[in-house]
Design a protein around this nucleic acid. Structure first.
Lengths: 194, 194
DNA sequence: CTTGTTTTTGAACGGTCGCTCATCTACCTT
DNA sequence: AAGGTAGATGAGCGACCGTTCAAAAACAAG
């Protein structure tokens, strides 16, 4: 009966996510989203009731589902050890220093911009940080078992510290996207593991 | 000859700084500043040519001159060691978990919100991070000399790691202002020093 | 007191914000 | 082919944005 939708909501959402990632929530206007997606305001609000805020929350969700696993890479797999952990950090540095990746991490950006005044955002961000800590803890436990790090290392404790380092890395990267600087931070964070 | 100014520009700037600190640059409107300072737009632009952006840059400067030294506390003094370093981190946790301090750190917030698209901001932020690293390096060198930490510790290396941890701490604090969580992060960051 | 200089005042500017809705259009069903 | 339904369109809503400016006011100098 009805007229079918002419655009793919997933594609539209993806474009919106890229915009929020690059510029932040407040700095991204609905007009920006309209231009980026090629979908008129009316259709946008038809497909995403709740408007800009809904689009943003769905962008966060899409980010955790699509981008985060790619960032985690092999660290997401059960057998991961220090090498995969280091690979994750090196990936962050690559991202922050590449022209296309200066936007940093959408979840870190949102933690700073929105979490204090938007509980929904804070919840998503907390889950992400917990997930990250979980993966790191597992990798470090594997590493201790394999002798890849010193035997006295407490995986849970070191993971907490490394999560903080990763987040700090993305803060520094925003102001100073210099490979040497960022790499030396990663090296320093890993120095304590041996 | 001229009519004297009826308000103290420093007081006005301080109020503006508090607003930017609490809500960020974009989320703070000129009308907010007018209400917070009790100074009309015309007078505000008269005293601070360049308007909102000038007020923001001067707020950053005031923050580094007034708030940062208070945060650093004894860490700013030449004789500081691990105790003072730990004191700095404990102060951060106190701030992030107190109702009045959930705004985090203005410089970290600005790094995320503005540094990528505003080189002036990026420069101020970089200077702050460098200053922080310098103080930490000095304290750790003192600590190594005194035997307060393990003798094999590289002060410069550990300082880089701790700066990242401090910044990460403020990111986590925005989404999760929970004392137990934040303290465990600080404990973990310090575990590597012994 | 008069004059000259600067500040204060707040209305108002053009622009942009997020969002809505009347209208038109295209499709599916019968 | 006709009718019914839902999407597409984009002008335009009221609110707010950062900023300006003409007028009024307050002081210092003469």
């Amino acid at each position: 009966m009805p007229r079918p939708r002419e655009f793919d909501p997933d594609t539209v959402l993806h474009q919106a996510m890229l915009r929020f990632w690059e510029r932040g929530y407040r700095a991204t206007s609905v007009e920006d989203l309209v231009k980026a997606t090629g979908v008129n305001p009316g259709s946008l609000y038809g497909a995403f009731p709740g408007g800009k805020h809904t689009l943003f929350m769905k962008s966060l969700e899409r980010y955790t589902r699509l981008v985060v696993p790619r960032q985690l890479g092999e660290l997401d797999e059960p057998g991961a050890s220090v090498a995969e952990l280091r690979g994750y950090f090196d990936g962050l540095v690559d991202g922050l220093t590449s022209p296309a990746g200066r936007q940093g991490c959408l979840l870190v950006n949102s933690a700073i911009e929105n979490a204090a005044e938007d509980n929904e955002v804070a919840t998503v961000v907390r889950h992400h940080f917990a997930r990250l800590e979980g993966r790191m803890t597992r990798a470090l436990a594997t590493a201790v078992g394999r002798g890849d790090v010193r035997a006295t290392l407490d995986p849970a404790c070191a993971a907490k510290s490394l999560v903080a380092s990763a987040l700090g890395l993305m803060v520094v990267g925003k102001a100073n996207p210099d490979r040497a600087v960022l790499t030396s931070i990663v090296d320093s964070a890993f120095a304590g593991l041996h």
